[in-house]
Nucleic acid binder design. Structure first.
Length: 161
DNA sequence: GCCAACGTTGGC
DNA sequence: GCCAACGTTGGC
């Protein structure tokens, strides 16, 4: 199992929104490096759900990959802001995965807090200027974030698969 | 293949 | 709203 960070603007789609819908296509990613990470995701991988452009920004919960990469439907939709005229059904350029909520953090683990954590201090997420919306995380980082949220492995184990 | 112009991200 | 960072585009 691998760990990831996925970013979303809560005004657009928050962790609470994910809990409400239950399962969400993670589409609209239009950066090649982020797309390549999406393609590496496997069912069961755990994603820290990061609220960007928020007050304050930070980690809001844990999501789980429940569907692996398929062509992102929005790239074919002329009405979508994510439409890509260079893409075709035969030769699709962008991918999406599916995620489901696993557990909401009792309180947001803010970016300020993350910067105080040893495992996160030097990470791309906390470094200024990193704009990747999907990035890998280390296991140590994941557990440290979970701990900072006041949760433990048992809190994850207690949840249905 | 270089690189300037441009657009977007996202913290502040 | 500002602007630093940085990915992308397109002329050459």
């Amino acid at each position: 199992m691998r760990f990831w960070v996925i970013k979303s603007e809560p005004d657009v789609f928050s962790f609470a929104d994910l809990q409400r819908v239950g399962r969400e296509p993670w589409n609209g990613v239009r950066n090649y490096q982020a797309r390549n990470f999406l393609r590496q995701m496997r069912v069961g991988d755990l994603c820290l759900f990061y609220h960007s452009n928020a007050k304050p920004p930070g980690l809001a919960g844990v999501a789980r990959v429940c569907g692996e990469a398929v062509p992102d439907d929005l790239q074919f939709d002329e009405a979508s802001a994510y439409f890509d005229p260079r893409s075709s059904r035969e030769n699709s350029r962008w991918s999406m995965v599916f995620v489901e909520p696993l557990v909401a953090f009792p309180a947001l683990v803010s970016l300020d807090t993350l910067r105080t954590l040893p495992e996160w201090a030097e990470s791309p997420l906390t470094r200024k200027g990193t704009r990747l919306s999907v990035l890998p995380a280390e296991g140590q980082q994941f557990w440290e974030a979970l701990d900072a949220a006041g949760l433990s492995l048992e809190d994850l184990n207690g949840l249905s698969a």
